[in-house]
Nucleic acid binder design. Structure first.
Length: 150
DNA sequence: GCCAACGTTGGC
DNA sequence: GCCAACGTTGGC
């Protein structure tokens, strides 16, 4: 089993939204590296940190799990969607996604600030300078350490 | 709202 | 293939 971290802007889709909907297709990822992690790395049952970005207190707010194998992101074919990609075809879809299932909301937000200050988390992709990846792997040792912080 | 870092596009 | 211009991400 692998561990992951997925970013979402709470104004767009928050941990509370996932809690209410229980499961959600993680659409709109338009970065090849992030796509590759979903397509090639994720398997149903993998665990995911749900991260709030671009907000007052960015940080890890919950836990989810991968619910499906990767499949084509429907929004790429929808001309009305802001994620529409005219360069992608149904025969050869460019963008893939997985469904993500709610597991729990953390008792508290484990803030980016707190993660940055923790020497045990040195090397985390999230903490690398300039890192903008919205879907990224988490090492097992980092996962276990962060779980212990809640 | 600012801006640094990064990714993509397209002319050459 | 290079690289300038542009668009996006996301912390602050």
């Amino acid at each position: 089993m692998n561990y992951w971290l997925m970013k979402s802007e709470p104004d767009t889709f928050s941990i509370d939204d996932l809690k209410r909907k229980k499961q959600e297709a993680w659409d709109g990822v338009r970065n090849y590296q992030a796509r590759n992690f979903m397509r090639d790395g994720m398997r149903p049952g993998d665990k995911v940190f749900f991260y709030h970005s671009n907000c007052a207190v960015p940080g890890i707010v919950g836990i989810a799990k991968v619910a499906t194998e990767a499949y084509p992101d429907p929004s790429q074919f929808d001309p009305k969607s802001k994620y529409f990609d005219p360069g992608s075809t149904r025969d050869n879809p460019r963008w893939m996604l997985v469904d993500v299932k709610f597991v729990k909301k953390l008792e508290r937000t484990i803030s980016l600030k707190e993660l940055q200050a923790d020497p045990a988390l040195d090397g985390m992709v999230l903490l690398r300078k300039g890192s903008r990846l919205s879907v990224q792997p988490v090492e097992a040792r980092h996962w276990k350490h962060i779980i212990g912080l809640e």
